[in-house]
Amino acid sequence: MDFNNLDHLYRQVIMDHYKTPRNRGAIEGGVTIDMNNPTCGDTIRLQLAIEDDIVQDAKFDGEGCSISMASASMMTQIVKGKTVEEALQLAEIFSEMVQGKDYDDEKFDLGDAEALSGVTKFPARIKCATLAWKALERGVEEGK
Rank of each mutant, 00 (worst) to 15 (best):
I93T: 15
A115D: 14
Q77E: 14
L48Q: 08
N4K: 15
D112N: 15
I14F: 04
G143D: 04
C128M: 06
A58T: 01
E92N: 15
M1N: 09
K107W: 02
L48S: 05
D2E: 12
L88Y: 01
R45H: 11
K121G: 00
K121S: 07
L9A: 04
T83C: 04
A70V: 09
T20K: 13
A113T: 14
I33R: 05
I54K: 08
Q56Y: 04
I93S: 10
T32C: 02
I50N: 04
M15W: 11
S95T: 14
H17A: 05
H17Q: 09
R22L: 06
L110T: 10
S117M: 07
H17S: 07
P123Q: 05
L131C: 06
A70M: 06
T130E: 11
L110G: 07
F3E: 12
D104F: 05
T120H: 04
D102F: 12
L131T: 09
D16Y: 08
Q77L: 10
E51L: 10
L110D: 10
V140K: 04
N23Q: 03
P38H: 07
D52S: 14
N36C: 08
T120Q: 13
I33S: 08
N5I: 02
L46Q: 11
G29E: 07
G64Y: 10
N37L: 11
P38K: 02
E106M: 04
D104G: 07
G100N: 08
I44Q: 06
K144P: 05
D102H: 14
G25D: 01
N36Q: 13
V55D: 04
T83P: 01
A87E: 00
F3R: 13
M1K: 10
Q89E: 12
V98E: 07
G143R: 10
L136C: 09
I33D: 04
A135W: 05
D61L: 02
L48M: 14
K80T: 06
G111K: 06
Q47T: 15
K121N: 06
E85L: 07
A26Q: 11
V13D: 08
D109H: 03
V55W: 07
Y103R: 06
T32I: 09
K19H: 12
E142L: 11
H17G: 13
G81S: 08
K107P: 01
S95G: 15
V98N: 02
E86A: 13
F3T: 13
M69E: 12
T20W: 00
A49G: 08
A135D: 05
Q56T: 13
E137K: 12
A135T: 01
E92Q: 15
T83Q: 08
Q77R: 06
E141W: 00
G30W: 00
L90V: 05
